[in-house]
Design a protein around this nucleic acid. Structure first.
Lengths: 192, 192, 192, 192
DNA sequence: GATGAATGAGTGTTCATTCAT
DNA sequence: TATGAATGAACACTCATTCAT
């Protein structure tokens, strides 16, 4: 019964370790303790197994974003929360993060692919969240004056860059990096 | 004749557009107007052609880093220069940057691969450059007090994150992003 | 269905006729009425298909050797039996003998190859069998006095030489050769 | 100037060590310190280089056969001489013997190939030499009564078998084998 | 004589996928 | 659900050979 779950878990592990192209359906089935055709019973093919996993990972992350508190004492806490939530997700879903980081770049050229649509979706979520945040913070005098769109772009780059760094060059990461990032942003944004 | 150059240029384009695994040696040779075995006359195989291109790209970027001025009026200019030089490289070598961004992540697990060694090399260059910079700036009173290692890590993540964003989600990028990033860092680092 | 058997039989025929290097996997599969990848489903590759066949041929011959009667009226009958059994095998397994005779020599340099280990094994079987025989015959007065090791070596060379001659230069062979060989040995060995 | 000789010597060595199919023209040229096209300047192709070497080896051996003394005190000396001359050749031309032993079997099916015609030629030389010898010896009462054709066949098999054994399974050979072979034949053939 | 560059024709092998059961 | 057997389509790579110089 748990064969389907087995299949998916094994696929997650192998795709993360070896990338999509470096992993064969035979290897997945063997390491999952089933036979190859079973993949085709549960999924339309290798690609669908892959996108199934990708969607699961994206859903999980988006769920965490949606769960971020909307009422906060001030606007900077929102930014702080976003940084922490993202790093938290990266640390708690290391394999699926790795899978996204290593297999999506090669696929993102295709606008019909899950990689593209979902990464753009997340980018836009981030963008809306941050611009709203920055605008509100500037209006209330909490933040100093910054160009909203560009600053949001910089923040997104920094958050994604940290996820990538952590996920791909693990070991080189630094535990207190999160707090340093929060402090870095606070100094930059808070009006003085 | 320029058949070898043709081969390399075509390979750069195709690897960048389709990734390493999505590109066949036959396709490269056809689009380069030569025959397949010529690849094996000039290179040991597909992989060597790939690493040859990668090394060229890394060399080019490292060359730009090495050319950064050592004498600067203050420390922040050094950080500014690094941000500009990196973005400049990304914009001037769009295909090779894309190739690195999309094909290296899947290969970085292998510590013997060019991707790993050279990316680590560049990481360390960045790290040394930035820590030296931050320490000097803090000593002279130019910068406010920050945790050096962690802040360098955040800066590197931001710089790399912007390159990745620009290279993979092009069109979503914003022209003034560079200046926004510089301003973001200046506000965060300069003592007041 | 007997597709696997078909594959093997065809491979035996083609390897025997054309040698290992002169036979392509495509040709084998086509003449066996199957597709090429089936070879790789049943065997790890061309080489394993080849060694599978070789081992079968060696096993068959060794089986015949092991089946030689241990109780014989005198020692010369043992030599006679060996000559007949070997020639019998050559005549009854013409293709597999040819395959061994034509494809092993080029491979025998590699001490890890089946060709080497099995041919040495058979050599040693022959050698033990013949030395024991000669010693017993000399002790009982059946045989005249001969240098045991060297004479065994000469007998082995003769037996193998006849197999080779028969297998490679067929048509030049002579039917009564077996009996002539037996008579040749009898005159040489029997005490008078 | 000695480039052609270099080419040939290297080819002899490599063909002997690795077989015809296991040796590439590139390897030959590289190890000979020349470039590939030079092979095509001196020979029509790989095959011609190979047959050139084969013919040289066969010529050398046939020369030795032709040089055997025609006037001998008795007929058995002729047989003795043949055995010694052949073993001598095997020992003095180890690489070329190996080349013939390992590369000819796979080619002997083709009646137009040098391997076939020359091996048949040598077989016939042996056959004529030995039948004449046996007949004369029987006529003079030196030899006992044997079936001429069949006995010649057995002798040829033995002589060739010893060459093959020595050449392919070297190390397993025995130094005194020659003398043992001569003694073996003497006991078998001489009238008592 | 000799070579650097280039190629036509294959070669063994892989892999996602399907079919009969 | 699940599988053993089988396949179509490709793929990286090799090699003997040639050509312009």
């Amino acid at each position: 019964m748990g064969k389907k779950k087995n299949l998916i878990d094994t696929a997650v592990r192998l795709f993360a370790e070896q990338g999509y192209d470096g992993t064969t359906t035979l290897q997945i089935s063997r390491e999952a303790g089933v036979t190859e055709p079973l993949i085709y019973y549960h999924f339309r093919g290798k690609e669908e197994l892959f996108t199934h996993i990708l969607n699961g990972a994206f859903d999980e992350y988006v769920g965490r974003l949606e769960a971020l508190p909307r009422d906060t004492p001030n606007e900077f806490v929102k930014i702080e929360n976003l940084i922490h939530a993202t790093q938290q997700a990266v640390e708690e879903m290391p394999r699926r993060t790795r899978l996204v980081m290593s297999s999506c770049p090669a696929r993102i050229k295709d606008p019909d692919h899950v990689c593209y649509s979902r990464m753009v979706g997340i980018y836009e979520w981030h963008y809306d969240y941050l611009t709203r945040c920055l605008e509100a913070g500037m209006a209330s005098g909490e933040f100093c004056d910054v160009p909203v769109a560009e600053t949001a772009y910089v923040l997104i780059s920094m958050i994604n860059g940290m996820s990538r760094q952590h996920s791909l060059l693990k070991g080189r990461g630094i535990l207190e990096a999160r707090n340093a990032a929060v402090a870095f942003c606070r100094r930059s944004l808070l009006a003085r």
